[in-house]
């Protein structure tokens, strides 16, 4: 199983997104790339970073990165490792997680609100990726 936020894991995740017709429809006009950040806590010593470029209902590029300053993504979605685990297990709704502050989002908030359905599907796609946790 690929490790969470490894290159291999992100490729598998992109495959799951690109095979999802519901996502393709919900995000057909979406343009915007994401930097995902897993912040360290008791169970994770170093932060993990992933980059994903989402464009018109497809994931067109994605990879793991070690230095977040190398990318200038339109959106940044970050949260503690313990909350990421809950998100991946379906225990936290992504939108609810943002409202409660368990996750933080930088970027055009209004745009994300309009594509909330697509955001939910993106999280559902994660569940289809076999994942080894750090």
């Amino acid at each position: 199983m690929p490790k969470l936020f490894s290159d291999e894991w992100i490729k598998e995740y992109m495959k799951a997104i690109n095979e999802n017709k519901e996502y393709e429809e919900a995000a057909k006009d979406w343009e915007g790339d994401f930097l995902f950040v897993i912040e360290p806590d008791e169970e994770l010593k170093e932060p993990l970073y992933g980059y994903l470029d989402l464009y018109h209902g497809k994931a067109r590029e994605g990879y793991a990165i070690d230095d977040p300053s190398k990318v200038n993504a339109a959106f940044e979605f970050r949260g503690k490792y313990s909350n990421w685990k809950k998100l991946l297990n379906g225990e936290i709704d992504p939108i609810k997680g943002l409202v409660t502050g368990q996750f933080k989002l930088k970027g055009n908030m209004a745009k994300v609100m309009r594509y909330a359905k697509a955001a939910k599907i993106l999280v559902d796609c994660v569940k289809k990726v076999p994942t080894e946790l750090p």
Partner: peptide, 16 residues
């Protein structure tokens, strides 16, 4: 309607 934030907090979410 699809872009409305209320859509995502529905018990069943319609597609287009």
């Amino acid at each position: 309607a699809m872009e409305d934030s209320s859509t995502v907090t529905s018990p069943r979410i319609p597609d287009e």
